[in-house]
């Protein structure tokens, strides 16, 4: 008698579990950025692609400034005593050439914004009182930069809690250091890096008590505790920008919301992001979503980014297939039932 061959399904489950363990165990990539890692990475100075600074039109002239302001100490000749002196450069006065030459303003001369008098050493004390330009001083009404909507950003900023609470003390430079600031969301294909970069701007003050104290007498904030209510907190903090929940856009034209809201008005409704019409598509994923849509690929459509936003990550093709299958099954059951009743 021939021996029956059985398929034992229990093995299927064991194989599935083993397969998952193998796939998960042999991944050596970094995985999602953690909150602390994100902070650390965001604060690391970007590397210059080349050490050849001659490509920057004003590098030779700027180098005179960087000789002292590009490092933590500087040397000068004390003519009164006739000797060379090493002096510490204050942190606030250090500008990293590495960061400056990858920033938006990399082609500038230092004296484009600072007084020509700074070319003399020692610098006159009165120069400290010089007016510091803000974004609109140069960019207002400028057609070249019209797509950044600086005027609209300014209106949003004027209505923000930063502006209303701190008046003139709070300028553009509190968040956007003119020496290091660079466009990120529009140019960086890696959304995680954009998130880290943007969140570091907020955390520079909100988690650095020394800077925080410059503007307020409030107690040291505990961001982790105040976000206790957020499910999967670590993942949320590493996957979205602070401004997604803490700022409001007054119009669709500008990319980044600048009307920072008071704490009580922060978004707490999950569906603002987790829904068919997520706020994230109008901000964080705006540029990526446009790029992906134009590629029109089936699988690409699902893998819009490295993130999965439940309720927002959808694929039209899969939706249609599932609806058709569902309708087919219901129709099949209805047809079968009717025939059963008729033929009874």
């Amino acid at each position: 008698m021939m021996r029956e061959i059985y398929i034992r399904p229990s093995w299927l489950v064991i194989v599935l579990i083993l397969l998952t363990i193998i796939i998960f165990a042999f991944d050596y990539s970094a995985g999602p950025l953690k909150y602390e890692d994100a902070r650390q990475k965001g604060q690391t100075a970007p590397e210059l692609q080349t050490t050849d600074l001659s490509q920057f039109p004003n590098s030779e002239e700027n180098d005179k400034c960087f000789q002292c302001h590009g490092q933590s100490k500087y040397t000068y000749e004390n003519t009164e005593q006739g000797r060379m002196v090493n002096q510490r450069m204050y942190n606030e006065l250090i500008v990293s050439p590495n960061e400056f030459y990858v920033s938006n303003h990399r082609s500038f001369r230092c004296t484009d914004c600072h007084s020509e008098e700074y070319q003399n050493f020692p610098h006159e004390g009165i120069l400290r009182m010089e007016y510091k330009y803000t974004c609109l001083d140069c960019h207002e009404g400028d057609d070249t930069y019209a797509h950044f909507y600086f005027e609209e950003l300014d209106v949003e900023f004027q209505e923000s809690v930063h502006s209303e609470k701190h008046s003139d003390d709070f300028t553009c430079w509190m968040c956007h250091n003119p020496h290091t600031y660079k466009i990120n969301a529009r140019t960086n294909e890696n959304i995680r890096e954009t998130i880290v970069y943007d969140n570091t701007i907020c955390l520079d003050c909100h988690s650095d008590f020394r800077r925080f104290q410059l503007l307020t007498d409030r107690e040291r904030p505990n961001l982790i505790k105040s976000h206790d209510w957020l499910p999967n907190q670590e993942l949320h903090l590493a996957s979205v920008r602070c401004i997604e929940c803490h700022a409001e856009k007054l119009s669709d034209s500008a990319l980044v919301a600048h009307k920072v809201l008071p704490k009580s008005m922060a978004v707490r409704n999950c569906k603002e992001c987790h829904s068919s019409n997520p706020e994230l598509l109008a901000s964080l994923y705006k540029y990526e979503a446009q790029a992906v849509r134009s590629k029109d690929g089936f699988f690409r459509g699902i893998t819009t980014s490295d993130s999965v936003v439940i309720g927002a990550s959808r694929n039209q093709t899969l939706n249609i297939i599932s609806l058709l299958l569902f309708a087919g099954v219901i129709a099949g059951i209805a047809f079968h039932s009717v025939l059963r009743i008729i033929k009874k």
Binding site: I23, F24, D27, S29, A30, G31, F299, S313
Partner: peptide, 22 residues
């Protein structure tokens, strides 16, 4: 895996591990 998304490999078979799991 989706309950603990930090355990999911960033990339599986050249695509996002999170998307594939989802």
């Amino acid at each position: 895996a989706l309950l603990y998304p930090q355990t999911i490999p960033t990339t599986i078979l050249g695509t996002s591990g999170l998307h594939l799991t989802d």
